[in-house]
């Protein structure tokens, strides 16, 4: 596994020092992505899923910083690279697609200029060739009449088209890994289906690994090969998507599935998880989920927290069903 993985994240910890103590938005997370694989990262707001993506691509806002563990891309460490070297890796080897396509494009530049700039930054090609590549990239993501649209400004595109431009921008330097942070959350369902199918197609054709960060279980089920469920900065469960969603081992995954309206058809009431996710300044001892868990025992409340054994980080895996 070690040799074949495209991305290996080992025991990653991110810390934010504050006046009231150190917050740990990402706490001891390990995961791997193989070439051509889509790993879904799912969790509620504050679970640390975006933070994990940002840590991998080296875009943590100070004072947040990686405080432990390592990130290996194609077997080489990238988490401790100097700024300038990391800048070369970013874009060239790791592409990023953000949630809001309007804020991730420069409104004052035509999209062609933004693509050409990115291509020339990372690949040794002439201006003309870069432009040809830009047209090809736009064509590939399904923008109609790419050669005439290349000089349009971002505001001249619809939301779905803008997201396609952002994907073209992330892919134009042919990265090995793409981190897509809620790429379809701001889009309508019909456009969302288009973008998901585009991501899957590109990933399959090029062998690009994708880390798909989202809160939508439906998107995860349709798009990803494996899924990682995060809770309070920790990995609750990780495994093949079908197995995790149909036979969840961690009670949190089971609770999450039960509270998704589509999954509990015909029931008058949804299963609800009592309480809310703890704030980062008040993560409980032991298993972070124990105050909300129906199965919790004394062992869960005490340190050490349950290790990830099998697919779930739980002392009693598989004992809570939806």
């Amino acid at each position: 596994m070690q040799n074949t993985a495209l991305l290996t994240v080992e025991n990653l910890c991110v810390e934010i020092p504050t006046r009231r103590g150190i917050l740990k938005p990402v706490d001891d997370v390990s995961l791997q992505i193989a070439p051509g694989e889509i790993l879904g990262v799912v969790g509620e707001s504050g679970a640390g899923k975006s933070m994990t993506g940002n840590a991998v691509i080296g875009l943590l806002d100070p004072p947040a910083h990686i405080s432990g563990g390592q990130v290996l891309l194609n077997g080489k460490r990238v988490d401790n690279l100097p700024r300038e070297q990391m800048r070369r890796v970013r874009g060239k080897q790791i592409g990023m697609v953000f949630q809001d396509p309007l804020t991730s494009l420069n409104p004052l530049l035509p999209i062609g200029d933004q693509l050409v700039e990115t291509i020339q930054e990372h690949l040794p090609v002439s201006q003309r060739e870069a432009r040809d590549r830009a047209v090809a990239a736009l064509d590939e993501v399904g923008i109609p009449a790419a050669s005439s649209r290349i000089d349009s400004y971002p505001h001249e595109f619809s939301g779905g088209m803008r997201q396609r431009v952002v994907i073209a921008l992330a892919l134009c330097a042919e990265p090995d890994l793409v981190i897509a942070d809620e790429p379809t959350t701001a889009l309508d369902v019909s456009v969302q289906a288009q973008i998901i199918s585009l991501l899957k197609k590109l990933c399959r054709e090029r062998g690009t690994g994708v880390m798909l960060v989202t809160h939508d279980m439906g998107v995860i089920a349709e798009a990803s090969d494996r899924v990682a469920v995060m809770y309070a900065g920790r990995l609750a469960e990780i495994g093949p998507v079908r197995q995790v969603l149909t036979d969840p081992q961690h009670p949190y995954t089971a609770g999450l599935m039960g509270s998704t309206p589509g999954a509990s058809l015909g029931r008058r009431r949804l299963n609800q998880i009592p309480g809310t996710m703890p704030g980062l300044n008040a993560v409980p001892d032991g298993c972070a989920y124990h105050p909300r868990c129906p199965r919790a025992e004394a062992k869960c409340r005490a340190e050490p927290r349950p290790p990830v054994s099998g697919s779930a980080s739980c002392w009693f895996p598989g004992e809570v069903k939806i």
Binding site: A193, I196, D216, M217, D225, L245, M257
Partner: peptide
């Protein structure tokens, strides 16, 4: 058809 379904793996 377009809406993502939680049981529609892949």
């Amino acid at each position: 058809e377009a809406a993502p379904r939680i049981d529609a793996f892949g």
